[in-house]
């Protein structure tokens, strides 16, 4: 019995410990945020990497999410003659949930993993120690710009994803399924609130924090050479995704 409890408890203890260390990293990141020097160029570089370079992925996933959602809801609503609600359902789903969550997941795969891999490589090849010996704090130089960039860029990517998702849904709904275009848009305007969009963007910023924080954490605590870097990368994607879904539930419960 006790062995069973130990067996079950160990991963939980490990998970809680890990969350604690992540929070400590966040605290020290915050404390380094207000201290000079302020390296805006490094932040911009990360913003380019997180934001601008992710546009392609986000455009494609956003558009196809909207399209498939239009297709699926159409068949459901058709059963009781509610085709006119396709547009508003689609827009609500995109702005509240699918836009932020799918964007965050795509960026986790593309950027969070890259952060873990990059910082992990720097750790195992002693580049992080090198920063320290050159009197440059690694958290301030490496972690803080990535986190700021992700927090700022995720909402921008999300609004783009929301928009192309709705446009994609409009294309499927109006051009392929022949829903009246006026009703499609009127229903969106009628039902979607500005709050839906903004709350979605707040979520996105939060997801940005999670994925960058986890990516950096896994990176700077990498041990064990190239193999360790691979492990850190995988773990960062898995942990970020889990935390994104968990926090999404709680954020939704608080906001809507």
């Amino acid at each position: 019995m006790i062995r069973f409890l130990e067996f079950a408890g160990r991963p939980l203890v490990f998970f809680i410990e890990e969350c604690g260390r992540i929070m400590l990293l966040l605290l020290s990141t915050i404390s380094w945020m207000f201290r000079p020097p302020f390296r805006f160029r490094v932040i911009f570089k990360q913003m380019e990497f997180v934001g601008v370079n992710s546009v392609g992925v986000v455009l494609i996933t956003g558009a196809f999410t909207g399209m498939v959602l239009a297709l699926q809801t159409y068949h459901g609503f058709k059963m009781f003659g509610g085709e006119s609600l396709v547009g508003s359902t689609l827009a609500l789903a995109m702005t509240r949930e699918l836009g932020p969550v799918f964007t965050a997941l795509m960026v986790t795969g593309r950027v969070g993993s890259a952060m873990a891999a990059e910082l992990g490589t720097m750790k195992v090849t002693e580049q992080i120690d090198a920063l320290n010996t050159m009197s440059v704090n690694p958290i301030q130089y490496l972690v803080m710009p990535r986190i700021i960039a992700a927090i700022l860029m995720l909402p921008v990517l999300t609004i783009i994803s929301d928009f192309v998702g709705i446009v994609g849904g409009y294309f499927v709904g109006v051009n392929l399924l022949k829903i009246n275009s006026g009703i499609f848009i009127a229903k969106i305007i009628d039902i979607v609130d500005l709050d839906d969009i903004f709350n979605g963007l707040i979520k996105a910023a939060f997801f940005g924090l999670i994925l960058s924080l986890v990516g950096c954490y896994k990176g700077i605590y990498t041990i064990g050479g190239a193999e360790g870097v691979g492990r850190a990368t995988t773990q960062s994607v898995v942990l970020s995704s889990i935390l994104i879904f968990i926090s999404d539930y709680f954020l939704t419960a608080v906001m809507f």
């Binding site: 911009f44 928009f163 848009i185 500005l194």
Partner: peptide, 21 residues
């Protein structure tokens, strides 16, 4: 690049907000 990107995002947000009226 980052500037253009952010401005595009702002324009979309502005457009959607205005349409929602």
């Amino acid at each position: 690049k980052v500037g253009v990107f952010v401005i595009i995002g702002m324009i979309i947000l502005g457009y959607m907000s205005m349409r929602l009226g």
